[in-house]
Design a protein around this nucleic acid. Structure first.
Lengths: 187, 187
DNA sequence: CGGCGCATGTAACTTGTTACATGATTCC
DNA sequence: GGAATCATGTAACAAGTTACATGCGCCG
């Protein structure tokens, strides 16, 4: 497994310098439906990348910035990123505890599952709304780096996946509320 | 974070005794689109669960079984499982390196991304086919534990999600091919 | 002046993967 | 005989989370 944290950082720094805190916020906002990083990984990695010369810390502007440490990508960092981009994808992992519980649900009261599916639905409705905002935002500004098309593909993935989650939630809530299948034998 | 490996094992043992190897195979086959476990977690956990009295090893039948160690769920194990089922879902993680690369794709040749999306599509077409088989299998046998409805909900999730992935793949392949007249990289 | 968000960081811990070792059995 | 698959296991490592500590600046 390659060190993905490294490439997330390098990637986000391609357009503009950012602080560790800002990187974390961006990941939470833009990548929320397909990626995450914790501070415990982020900050040490920023140090390592600096030592390796792939990013460098900017001197604190004596203006309005408080203790904020900004980092910018170096040429070496950009090269490293490109090298990774062309490698075959190595990490694809999905872990949904909800489905585990659904699978074994016959051992627990249905009301319980219903609650859990409700919570799942609410969360992904929220994701969908964030994705919609992001898309509108992208479409309303111009595209100096020529990457909006690619980013829109990523947003589109999120919309499709989350819409599928919502549809499933509705069908499942209906099922749990009792109105349902045990399909009559079919020919 | 609760120890999910534990509950996957307990859950799979609710219907019938299984060996570690069989548990691994079941996870790979049935849970492939929303869960995974490695031997490095599975075997040590089986030992711990045995020590804790939540499962117990069956004596080797001197018939045809080779070195295979079967485990069955104990009453304590079943109680533990039920207790976990009603707890709110704690783990939901999705990590798709492909989308990371898509997000930063403008820095690399399009032909590269196209390959990666193709591979993604092929993999999820395979998932979809496995899910279809599983569903047909479930629908063709009877349901002594009354849990087929729940399991079908899980399968339905997989079908919807994977179908969304395929639709996205097609749209994205179209997008990636649209930008290029015809790629002749080298001469 | 209290609380919130900004901002950085780390130590202890848990979780998860990989690579390897071992050996039996089945199928060609 | 050799390959594949069955079957169990672990040591070394990598990845990832959590809980905590610290302090600033801003708003009400």
């Amino acid at each position: 497994m390659a060190n993905n944290t490294k490439y997330v950082i390098l990637g986000l720094l391609t357009e503009t310098p950012l602080s560790g805190y800002e990187i974390k916020k961006l990941i939470n906002l833009r990548f929320r439906f397909f990626w995450s990083e914790s501070y415990g990984q982020l900050y040490p990695e920023l140090k390592r990348l600096t030592t390796a010369g792939l990013i460098e810390g900017l001197p604190p502007l004596d203006g309005s910035l408080r203790g904020k440490q900004m980092y910018k990508l170096t040429d070496a960092g950009r090269a490293e990123l490109v090298q990774w981009l062309v490698l075959p994808v190595a990490t694809e992992s999905v872990r949904l505890e909800l489905l585990l519980k659904m699978y074994f649900a016959s051992l627990a009261p249905k009301s319980n599952l219903l609650q859990q599916v409700d919570a799942f639905k609410a969360e992904h409705r929220r994701d969908l709304s964030i994705l919609g905002q992001f898309r509108r935002e992208l479409e309303s500004i111009d595209d100096p780096y020529g990457n909006h098309g690619d980013i829109l593909r990523v947003i589109d993935f999120g919309i499709r996946a989350n819409q599928a989650y919502l549809d499933w939630s509705d069908a499942t809530i209906h099922y749990l509320q009792g109105g349902l299948p045990h399909e009559t034998k079919n020919a």
